[in-house]
Amino acid sequence: MELEQYISTGIIESFLLGLATPDEVAELQRMRLRFPALETEIAAVERRMENAAFEEAVMPPARVWEGIQQHLNWESSFRDEKLSDEERKHYTFISMQPKEGTYISVHRSWKIILILFFLLSKLFLVGFLYFYFKSQSLQDKLNEARHPQTTAATR
Rank of each mutant, 00 (worst) to 15 (best):
M96W: 06
E81L: 14
K141R: 12
F93Y: 04
A52M: 11
H147G: 04
I104D: 14
Y91W: 11
I68W: 04
K99N: 09
T151C: 05
E39T: 03
E46N: 14
R79G: 01
S77V: 00
M49N: 06
M96G: 12
A52V: 08
V106W: 04
W74V: 08
H107R: 12
S135W: 11
Q29T: 10
Q70S: 01
E56Q: 14
E55Q: 14
T150S: 10
F128S: 15
A57I: 07
S109F: 04
L17I: 10
L17K: 15
T150G: 08
L3P: 00
L19F: 10
Y130N: 09
M96A: 07
L120C: 09
T21G: 12
Q29F: 09
I68V: 05
W65C: 04
L72S: 00
L142E: 13
W74H: 09
Q5Y: 09
V45Q: 07
K141T: 04
E144W: 09
A153W: 03
Y103Q: 11
K89E: 15
L3G: 00
Q97N: 15
K82M: 03
Q29E: 14
H107K: 11
S77F: 01
V64H: 07
V126N: 11
R63Q: 13
G101L: 00
P36H: 03
E56I: 08
S109A: 06
F128W: 15
S137V: 04
K99T: 02
R30H: 09
S14Q: 15
R32L: 07
Y130F: 12
K111V: 13
V106H: 04
I104P: 04
Y91S: 13
I115A: 08
R34L: 04
R34Y: 01
R146V: 07
S135G: 09
M1N: 12
A44P: 03
L116H: 10
S8R: 07
L38C: 00
E81V: 10
L119G: 04
A53Q: 10
K111S: 07
H90C: 13
P22S: 05
Q29W: 06
N51S: 10
N73K: 02
R34S: 05
P98I: 03
F131T: 03
A26P: 00
W65S: 10
E144N: 12
G101R: 03
T151W: 14
G127L: 15
E144D: 11
L33P: 01
Q97P: 06
Q149K: 15
A57V: 06
S95R: 08
T92Q: 15
V58R: 14
E2K: 08
K141N: 04
Y6W: 01
W74A: 10
G101D: 00
F124I: 08
L125R: 14
M59V: 06
H147Y: 07
E75K: 07
R34H: 02
E41F: 06
H147R: 05
E87M: 08
L3I: 02
D140L: 06
F117R: 11
T150A: 13
